[in-house]
């Protein structure tokens, strides 16, 4: 099938502002958007820049704003989009070139919530036991691939880039509700700051955008309640 692809391009060395480049090409309807932009780059315009790595929805490199919604280019098929495909870089992060954004502010927020296991007790001779029920509480939050689809779909993040964002809160959730972890108080204190958790206005764009189907808003609300009840 023939598709018309519009890509918002920007080369900081040549362009004053971003512009829409149009490409018309023949693709299969079972192609993914990543295949389409690969075809553009390899056969039509080698200067097109974007990130991709595993191409199977696990590395989280190719998050893009495709037809108005944040998705992974490697997880959306042409037949689900139709003949017109508009691709923009994800919003709220500085564009470096074409579809590549500076992810550092995003990773800084992630690092800020101490996304690692904290337990000062001496290591037990066997495992640190956790029941299946206790594991289930934060199961969804372990699935995050840090693609930034959620954080860059958030209207609050677009207007306030210092908001810690849904991805960081989900990764905090993963440890706050881990029965073996002891860092919950410290993480909740970090999330309680002015650009933390409470900036969430429950617009649900994060939940809709997540390519891993994590119920993000649910996780954020659970952290909000945890913080509230612990302080009460």
């Amino acid at each position: 099938m023939k598709v018309n692809v519009k890509i918002k391009r920007f080369n900081p060395e040549a362009d004053k502002r971003p512009y829409w480049a149009e490409y018309s090409l023949e693709v299969r309807e079972t192609d993914r958007v990543l295949d389409v932009i690969n075809q553009i780059k390899w056969e039509m315009d080698g200067s097109l820049s974007y990130r991709r790595s595993c191409a199977h929805g696990i590395c989280g490199s190719d998050a893009m704003l495709i037809n108005g919604v944040n998705r992974l280019a490697c997880k959306i098929l042409v037949r689900d989009l139709g003949e017109v495909i508009n691709i923009e870089p994800i919003r709220g992060l500085p564009v470096l070139k074409d579809l590549i954004v500076d992810m550092e502010p995003f990773f800084d927020s992630y690092k800020a919530v101490l996304p690692f296991f904290i337990n000062e007790d001496p290591e037990p001779p066997t495992e640190r036991y956790q029941s299946a029920e206790d594991r289930e509480i934060f199961d969804a939050s372990t699935k995050c691939i840090l693609c930034a689809c959620c954080t860059t779909s958030c209207p609050v993040f677009w207007t306030n880039g210092r908001y810690i964002g849904p991805a960081a809160i989900v990764n905090a959730h993963r440890f706050i509700f881990d029965s073996r972890d002891q860092g919950a108080d410290e993480r909740l204190q970090i999330l309680n700051q002015s650009n933390g958790l409470w900036r969430c206005r429950t617009a649900y764009n994060c939940t809709e955008a997540c390519p891993r189907d994590i119920p993000i808003t649910k996780a954020i609300e659970e952290v909000k309640r945890e913080l509230l009840w612990r302080r009460a």
Binding site: R201, A203, N205, E208
Partner: peptide, 16 residues
């Protein structure tokens, strides 16, 4: 315009 769903419009109308 980002093509969000119910939650986004609920938020936008609430803010306006």
């Amino acid at each position: 315009m980002y093509r969000g769903r119910e939650g986004q419009w609920a938020f936008l109308l609430h803010r306006i």
